[in-house]
Write a protein that binds this DNA or RNA. Structure first.
Lengths: 227, 227
DNA sequence: GTCCGTTTCAAACACCTGTTGCAAACGATA
DNA sequence: TATCGTTTGCAACAGGTGTTTGAAACGGAC
């Protein structure tokens, strides 16, 4: 009959509710690896060093724990990606370059890998928690990209500009979403050789060449010996 | 003490073992929607109109049913994609164009959508069944693409050519792997407007322009009014 | 019909799941 | 110290899970 503590009006950076945080972090790890159905509350509580009843007390039930875990993971990722450099003063081509580099960097070595893993799982298999992730985490990125593209390609029809954006994002996401398959196909050595810098440079050149902006950057084929 | 029937030496196209096939199809549907952990053997058997014990009798246990389901789904997809046109006589640029069109077509409207759904799930979350899927289903496609690229870009270093392949495939996969998120971001109308033909033409042009093959196809930006 | 291997069925099994009650322990305040 | 609200721990619950059993039903072969 005693309700779990309301977290909405707590000082956000205080270490208050540390057990709650322990649960969230443990849940993040388990959910990221096993998914919602595969994870068990006992596993989560063991990992958090707490009792089974803690989940019921702090979150009510497993589903609300999951939603809170996803929201927490996404808010951390946003916070981590937040203090990125502000490129608002640069020309659109430079901002596109920075966008590609930033997106690849965020996905390659996120501050908290398990958060990213959970978010990617959430995006590939939408759940009730997906909408808030998309709205708060993905939409700002997407709007940023399409603001750049609108400035860069002002006369292009919206539909085509959308596909250009998808081509940029699709190239970046590939390395995150299909790394396992690529490794099975070409071996760990070949895939690991594709460092963050190499991929960043490739996607940037590929995209700029496709958009006819190769004047700013050497095209892929003209400099055959390029790395 | 009576073993389940050995299927390895059966005439492949006979309707023998119809109950086994019913189970496989029902399992495919359920596994595709719920995943391995989310699916229940009772749900699968109900859908197949059979008794619970049928799974144990025909496959031994749930995990072996899953593996067989994935293998069956992938073998059907291979069979469906198999009779594609043979472009071996065409120049490499034409074959690349055909590859992009074929890959998008296969993913957009597969003969058996649930098979494709199950395969995509399998690729995003590797399981013991993933390796055989990759080897039998994905590797031939990948080898086909990189044979084309080797002919098209003979002087490009292997590592860079690998990334070019990933750029092509990444653009195509995006529409399959991230359709839900795109719809949440831009609305169903905007996403549905990206027809198979429109996406095929875009990715082809984008890729050809990036590779400096724009002479064959008008670049994206030079024809501003292009669809 | 009788036999035989094969397949299906209903029922139950042992186990694990998420969830809950209740008592004990905690920590600050007076 | 005593008291309060808060948090944790133990044990158990009801329900669902995958799995198995043993008997019944099927379908040909003789």
């Amino acid at each position: 009959m005693i309700g779990p503590p309301d977290v909405t009006d707590l000082p956000p950076d205080a270490k208050i509710n540390e057990p709650r945080l322990r649960l969230l972090l443990a849940a993040e790890s388990v959910f990221a690896r096993k998914g919602f159905d595969g994870a068990t509350v006992r596993d989560i509580c063991d990992r958090a060093g707490m009792n089974i009843a803690a989940i019921n007390y702090h979150f009510g039930d497993k589903e609300r724990l999951y939603i809170e875990t996803v929201r927490h993971a996404h808010s951390c990722s946003v916070a981590d990606a937040g203090p990125a450099l502000d490129h608002s003063g640069l020309p659109p081509a430079e901002r596109l370059r920075a966008f590609i580099a930033g997106m690849l960097r965020n996905m390659d070595a996120p501050v908290r890998p398990e958060s990213m893993q959970l978010l990617m799982r959430e995006l590939s298999q939408p759940s009730p928690a997906t909408i808030s992730v998309v709205e708060d985490f993905i939409r700002p990125m997407a709007m940023g990209l399409f603001a750049i593209l609108a400035e860069l390609l002002p006369e292009m029809p919206d539909r085509q500009r959308l596909m250009v954006g998808f081509s940029v994002v699709g190239q970046c996401l590939y390395y995150r979403q299909n790394r396992t398959v690529s490794t099975l196909l070409f071996g760990a050595a070949a895939v690991d050789a594709l460092t963050l810098d190499a991929v960043t440079e490739h996607i940037t050149r590929f995209t700029f060449a496709a958009l006819g902006l190769a004047g700013d950057y050497p095209s892929v084929v003209r400099r055959e010996g390029a790395v």
